[in-house]
Amino acid sequence: MTEKELICVNCPMGCRLTVTMEGKEVLSVKGNTCPRGEAYARQECVQPMRILTSTVRINNGTHRVLPVITEKEIPLELMEQAMAEVREITVDAPVEVDTVILENIAGTGVNLIASRSMKHA
């Protein structure tokens, strides 16, 4: 059995997690204050997953760029590929928060959505 110390990245609480592992199998997770912490620790030991946030260009919006976010975590190793897709996108104002901006980013099955509403300038 091995013990691994992790810091939960779900929210700024940054809970310190202790994961007990047997080979590649997670036996227990301690130190989390919510169920997300346990799920994070189990996933982190297998394949780290992260939310991606960025911006895309927007035509006729109140600002020049629109912030976007993945609906769910995507594999950390696919960040670069995902960003290459994000850079190609331009949308038109107005946009409502949570509107899907790109489906199935980097082939992950996860959608990229608007993380705010933006009016026509």
Binding site: V9, N10, P12, C34, T53, S54, I69, S115, R116
Partner: peptide
């Protein structure tokens, strides 16, 4: 602050700053 991690205490959700 377009990154995520806002609102877990208030809304029990992980939001971006603008959201």
């Amino acid at each position: 602050c377009i990154h995520n991690g806002f609102g877990l205490q208030t809304f029990k959700e992980q939001l971006s700053g603008p959201a």
